[in-house]
Design a protein around this nucleic acid. Structure first.
Lengths: 215, 215
DNA sequence: CGGATTCTCCCCGTCGCGGGGGATCCGCGG
DNA sequence: CCGCGGATCCCCCGCGACGGGGAGAATCCG
């Protein structure tokens, strides 16, 4: 049985391109297209795709809202957010909305199909480029005025300790705060990085260069 | 209150050196020394040190056995195994016996005191050099006849999937085996790497070069 | 033929993790 | 002034992770 995909993008050219790439694969199949977020719920209900390729910027209901609504329903599909720029301001919102991963429009066809297969398996798609942007600025000591990093200082500190292998109680002891506080920060970090658990957060930290192997 | 340390090594020169390094720190204090594993239990019972610096190779009761006995008691101290070579064959056994970390005899004083402080805090000491040895040979495709790696092929495979962020059910699905089997492998990997949870295992995988950031 | 190793599967229990709420306090800026 | 983001703490709950057992089957080797 093939992986069924729904394409949501207001640009017809993009839809055609994605459809061509996906339908060229024997194990993937495009079951529908939408040009607006408003059509998405009904299409998903009808076709029950495993994966939804969702554009972020669309007139009317944008990809963020559409994603949020989709995931509120029972047994939702995986949402793979499609964006033009890795530094899109909406990237963070999409993660919070529950998107499983990202896909740049300039990604090569092989990357597109692989991304679809990965999320269809139910695995998170850690996207170094996007994550690096989120964490950005911090990695190499750069606390420059940018604040481009969506992680707050506290969250970045917690992530570092997570990447050092500390448990929540240990982090709490180190920072001299309550475990509940640590849990909140950890939860925020997971949401912002778009990952499922602390292990994936640590992987993201390494892959993004946020922490570097001592070797 | 300072961190109390017990030194166990059959070589007096080593004991003197370690004592000098440790007693030079205001927050550390050597409460006793032993030249043989046989004396350890009574010394620990009397002085209740937080940390025991334990040589592996000793006449009579070696460090492995002594560690095993120590940790069988209630409220045991942390054991920091001291070894001359990172590739000591006993490294693995010491991990299984419950040692919290490793220390090379050629470590610089600053490293020694830091290691003591870390284990005293109750945190595991991930020792790249030692872990690299354990995982060794595999990292770069080298399935050479050595089998020096204490990880079996299956365990190495499971570690790779862990380092890819997969959960146990996901790994089971990927390998087409039961979740119980995966749990066994994961447990073995944790024991062999001397780490507490999968997050630390992934950290060890990165730090040892077993997996390399894609960048 | 043992014995060792590896891989496989299972039961049990505990506990930390993560998700869902909500709440307070602060400082900054409109 | 009030809104908002950040940091702090609290509750409940479900599930997965982990430890410690045991146990069967296949393989290889002395």
């Amino acid at each position: 049985m093939s992986i069924e995909v729904l394409i949501v993008d207001d640009d017809e050219l993009v839809r055609i391109g994605l459809r061509a790439i996906i339908d060229a694969q024997p194990d993937l199949r495009v079951v529908g297209e939408a040009a607006d977020g408003i059509e998405v719920p009904s299409l998903v209900a009808r076709h029950r795709p495993q994966v939804v390729l969702m554009d972020v910027r669309m007139p009317g209901i944008d990809g963020i809202q559409a994603t949020r609504r989709l995931l509120a329903a029972a047994d939702p599909p995986r949402v793979l957010v499609v964006t033009t720029f890795a530094n899109d301001e909406y990237v963070y919102d999409a993660l919070r909305a529950g998107a499983t991963g990202f896909l740049l429009k300039r990604a090569r066809p092989a990357e597109v199909v692989e991304a679809v297969r990965v999320v269809a398996r139910g695995e998170s798609l850690l996207f170094p480029a996007a994550i690096r942007r989120l964490v950005g600025a911090y990695g190499r000591q750069g606390v420059d005025g940018l604040r481009a990093a969506r992680l707050t200082e506290r969250e970045a500190e917690v992530l570092r300790l997570m990447a050092a292998g500390l448990s929540n109680p240990e982090i709490a002891a180190r920072l001299v705060v309550g475990v509940e506080t640590v849990k909140t920060h950890v939860g925020n970090v997971l949401a912002k990085l778009g990952v499922r658990d602390r292990t994936q957060a640590v992987i993201a930290a390494y892959e993004s260069g946020f922490v570097v192997p001592a070797g």
